[in-house]
Amino acid sequence: MKTLRALSMVALILALGMGATSCKQVNDADLQTAAQELLVANPDMAGVTVTVADKVATLTGTVAVDSVKALAETTVAGVKNIKSVVNELEVVPPAPDYTELDATINAALADALKDHSKVTAEVKDGVITLSGNIAEKELPTLMQKLNALNPVQIVNNLTVK
């Protein structure tokens, strides 16, 4: 009888233990899903990942500005049953868009290079890279023309003769 009681106690403890464990896992996973759904709704937070353990949410990934980092934290903190939020988000400003500047420079480049037949130029991210060769006395004229296009930088790989 005693043995049976002891066994049933063990079984009960095991059952409770397993039940408690599985219940906690479901909870965290649900919280994580709920939090992630809220974050996904905001395109500014596309780079944010949330994980939940013991009802504590941890935010990882990158955002463009400080305000979005703060907003992600308050958004997740507002999910019911989340105890606290660990905000490990990194703020990485987006790379500037040089498409328009590159197009403007490229459009004007043919005219600027017209009198310098042995010079070739490439434009990327607002940077003009020169190659080929040029007479020394023509170099200042070319440089003035290219500087007037207001590039980010001029990389001069020209051979000066």
Binding site: P140, N147, Q153, I154
Partner: peptide
């Protein structure tokens, strides 16, 4: 431009944009 060219005769330092009109 004369000063710029004196400091960097062949404009090889790639560290200036002098856009003066």
């Amino acid at each position: 431009w004369a000063i710029y060219q004196r400091i960097d005769p062949h404009f090889k330092s790639n560290d200036v944009i002098l856009n003066v009109k």
